[in-house]
Structure formats: structure tokens, C-alpha cells
Design a protein around this nucleic acid. Structure first.
Length: 249
DNA sequence: ATGGGCACCTGGCTGC
DNA sequence: TGCAGCCAGGTGCCCA
């Protein structure tokens, strides 16, 4: 890496003052992921980044003029710039010189949804004694990571479970169906590039096509694809929840 | 320990 | 056409 340029330090957490000096001149050794955090490993530490709701990373040519909301650049030896763009500034950038798994943002994260560890039995065990609504429960990163607002509604639809059900009211069979639904929904969505609701595009400029596969999300008032009942919407924890009152109990 | 609510931002869409 | 109001793909933190 040749250089680091920060134009806007006010992301979700301010970028540390010594950040550029710490990272400048180092060599990228590996790129990994944990939950929705991207980990870029260098010789003396790891960069932890999150894209928030509106962030994106692009490789641009060296002389590309920065646009509004292009908050930082990492200039690499190959002559390209890794550029972070984030209109809402919900993204973040951290540096750690110890094991990133121990970083406060990562230390308490639960299982990866697509891992073998996350299965029906794991979810069933986790739901015991939890009175919170199951939709909020599966969006809790201390239960399972990676389940955002769209996929929470979709997974519950596929598992035929009402989003309002108390987590502890799930049977072992339902927990198993829900764990499978979470894996299926995320796996399928990833395969076709995610869900483009408005303007999201991937690094090549292509939208995600999972929107066409949504059963309930943003379909309020439209006919359920299974039973034709009008899809309902309400708010849980300040987030919109969509569901079919006929298919989900 | 758990659950609920708030916070951080800008931009795009809706409806008057 | 202009503009106010509302809503949004996330998630950590504070408080009861």
C-alpha cells in the first residue's frame, strides 16, 4: 500500500487521528469477513470495516476525482485506489493491532448463519427463556449474525412462523425450520447478488436480483404468493416487519 | 441478564 | 414545481 487519504473522519465512529500513519506503507496479507465486518490484515494489525447501510468499496483508477461522500482512499501498489463511498456515513473504520476477534465490535458476535454450528438445535437452545419477539430475536447479533431486516421477514415467512411469536414459544421443529429458512434465504440471496430495493449495485455496477424472490418484504397490501391473502406490515423495534397472517402462525 | 428505545446521517420518494 | 415529512439494506449503547 502506498498511501492512505481520509477526507471525512466523521463516520459512525470518528476515524482515529493516527490512523493514516499507522496503516501507511504496509502490505495487505489477507482479506476476511466476520458477520458484516470486512477484515483486512496487515503485518502489524487489522483494519476492520463496515459498510453500514449505504457504504460501498470500489477500485478506481489512480487519477479518478473523488465525488461527494467518497470518505477515504487506500492507494495500492498496483496503481489502483480502493475507495470508500458512503452517503449516510453509517459505515465505520477501525484499526486493531491484536486479534480482531477480540475487538469489542466482534468479541460478542454469535455464530455465522451459514456455518454448521448454526442449526435447529443451536437456535432452539438459544430461544429458551427468551420472551422477545422472534423477529427481533433472529436479528440480534448475539444470537446469529447476518440476518438483517429484509431476510428476517423472509425467513419467518418460509418457516411459517409469525414475527410476533415470543422466541421461547418456538417448538424444536419450528426452530429447525427457521434455522433452515435463514440459511436458505441468505444462501439464495447471496447467489444472485443480494436485494436491490433502490439504488444498491455491486462492485461491477450490477443490481442484486433477490427482490424478485421476496415473498413479503415491501409487499404490503399485495397478494401473498402462496395463499393470496394481502401481505401485512407493522413496526417492531422501529423496523418494518412484513408477514402473511394466513401462512404464518 | 434482558428488553426497549435512541442514536448516528443523507437522499429519495410521496403527497400536498 | 417546491417543499415538508417520512422512510430506508445497520447495529451499538444506554437505561430501566
Amino acid at each position: 500500500m502506498l498511501d492512505v487519504i481520509v477526507r471525512e473522519r466523521r463516520l459512525r465512529w470518528p476515524i482515529a487521528a493516527h490512523f493514516e500513519a499507522t496503516v501507511r506503507g504496509q502490505t495487505v496479507r489477507a482479506v476476511e469477513r466476520r458477520a458484516k465486518y470486512i477484515l483486512i490484515r496487515f503485518d502489524t494489525g487489522t483494519l476492520i470495516l463496515h459498510l453500514g447501510m449505504s457504504g460501498s468499496l470500489r477500485l478506481v483508477k489512480l487519477d479518478t476525482t473523488p465525488k461527494a461522500h467518497d470518505h477515504w482512499d487506500i492507494r495500492v501498489d498496483s496503481g489502483w485506489i480502493l475507495r470508500f463511498h458512503d452517503p449516510r456515513r453509517f459505515g465505520s473504520l477501525h484499526w486493531t493491532d491484536t486479534d480482531p476477534a477480540l475487538h469489542p465490535l466482534l468479541a460478542k458476535l454469535a455464530a455465522e448463519p451459514l456455518s454448521r454450528e448454526f442449526d435447529g438445535e443451536y437456535l432452539y437452545r438459544a430461544t429458551r427463556k427468551r420472551s422477545v419477539a422472534v423477529k427481533q430475536f433472529i436479528m440480534n447479533s448475539q444470537v446469529v449474525v447476518g440476518v438483517g431486516n429484509i431476510y428476517a421477514s423472509e425467513a419467518l415467512f418460509r418457516a411459517h412462523i409469525s414475527p410476533r411469536r415470543a422466541a421461547r414459544r418456538l417448538s424444536r421443529k419450528e426452530a429447525t425450520a427457521l434455522a433452515k429458512a435463514i440459511k436458505d434465504v441468505l444462501g439464495e440471496a447471496i447467489k444472485i447478488g443480494g436485494t436491490t430495493l433502490r439504488d444498491y449495485v455491486n462492485a461491477d455496477g450490477a443490481p442484486g436480483y433477490f427482490r424478485q424472490k421476496l415473498f413479503v418484504y415491501e409487499r404490503k397490501g399485495e397478494a401473498c404468493r402462496v395463499c393470496k391473502t394481502a401481505v401485512k406490515q407493522f413496526v417492531q423495534g422501529q423496523r418494518s416487519t412484513y408477514w402473511c397472517s394466513t401462512c404464518q402462525v
